[in-house]
Amino acid sequence: MEIICIVCPNGCRMEASGEGGNLQVSGNLCPKGIDFAKAEITAPMRSLTTTVATVFPESPRLPVKTRSEIPKGKVMEAMAKIRTVVVHEPKKVGDVILPDVFGTDIIATGELAR
């Protein structure tokens, strides 16, 4: 099967064949591609980036992301959880906005000044 690697902008078009330990991957420019292909076949993961509401009229949204990847199938559920958040305090990049969402934290990716 064809898998497009999304790890970096090269976007390698890889061809994966075989199963489990015998998985053969070709078309990757770097080893990250093999890891990606393996994960994609067994348990695909995605990072999620979005925004949360704030109480500050000058900056009504704060950009956030999952600290590490979450299962691809849980992306919409994660969105529903994130959507309930309203930020009341100034934040810095990396501050935790919502802990423990499918095994990771939702963290700020932008500055929120008062």
């Binding site: 497009i4 690697c5 999304i6 790890v7 970096c8 976007g11 078009r13 995605r46 691809k72």
Partner: peptide, 12 residues
């Protein structure tokens, strides 16, 4: 656009 964006933004 980049093929990775076709994959992760559309195909997904």
């Amino acid at each position: 656009g980049l093929s990775r964006n076709i994959s992760q933004c559309l195909d997904d």
